[in-house]
Design a protein around this nucleic acid. Sequence first.
RNA 1: GGAGGGGUUCCCGAGUGGUCAAAGGGAACAGACUGUAAAUCUGUCGGCGGACGCCUUCGGAGGUUCAAAUCCUCCCCCCUCCA
Length: 316
Amino acid sequence: MRRLSIVAIAGATGTGKTGAALRLARAFGAGVVNFDSRQVYRSIPLVTAQPSLEEQEVCPHRLYGFLELTEAMHAARFAGLAHEALAETADQGLLPVLVGGTGMYLKAILQGLSPIPDIDPDVRERVLAECAQKGSDRMHAILVSVDPEAAARIHPNDSQRICRALEVYRSSGRPLSDWQRQKGEAPPYRVLKIGLHRDLDELTVDLARRIDSMLEQGALYEIRAAWKEVPDRTVPGFSGIGCPELLAHLHGDCTLKEAGAMWLKNTRAYAKRQITWFKRDSEIIWRAPSDLSGLEELVGNWLDSGEDRAGAGENQ
RNA sequence: GGAGGGGUUCCCGAGUGGUCAAAGGGAACAGACUGUAAAUCUGUCGGCGGACGCCUUCGGAGGUUCAAAUCCUCCCCCCUCCA
């Protein structure tokens, strides 16, 4: 992997990351690489707030809207795709700019993941079935006996992580905690992390506005079409906020107004989780979306300082 | 006008003499997080104090009782039904 200089723009949903990225595209000739776990789905660009076609015309955009609703994504797979996309962007002579809101994906890209092998699908299915039957408490007790270290870290109610740990053990024959001792390899990137932060209450006002605007632009129509394509609510693509709410309305379970209220509530809660995640990252340089005036200077200086040290050619 | 039902902590909602600052859910706040991560999960959640505790709270005002959100009286408001 080459030593690329890349900019990462992080922040909660609706803080204007796309806009900030386009500023960099205009100023430096950048290419955007997504790191958002839901914006990868093809059939639901509006509901997942993918950059519009006009926005995507400003510069090359990668890893948006390429996946079928039925297909699952996960951090390791995404990181692999992102490395390719970053390299391709650099090959075009553009500054790669990672943009997104999935903290774990960004971490997987920038720090790497432990080299845990893929899980045998049969094992996975059996574990999930067993958990559904026995409940997370008893599954946790089982985990204690095979991987006490992981069990100590995972709460007995956290069925998702308990199942993951058990899957890894049963599928690979080694405890998850054992695998995780081997840290992932961080790529040799030189990274500038920029975070966009807004007060949550202020952000919520805009999130409400954005939902109204999505509905005006045909979010309901988009979901109806997606449902026609894949009439299954449990499919990975429909797990993004907005989908379950709109599907509930389409099935007559609630009014559109109620669906909108739920959508907003869930989006706000999600934004809160994103803020919690990113604020722990001490490498992030925070900016207010209302004042991005120094952004180009910040990035420009950072690029210059890197060239001095690493010499020419690192970026092309 | 008559007959019922109801007003509970930010919201919904349990609670019908003590074990009630009051179940449960939601919201909110704080947090965790290496392969589902827009997921999953945790803690706090009337005020003050380290705990024991003290103070304020269950529409309002009185009363009964050692003790009331819970019983009685009157008053205010809401809903349903009959007129």
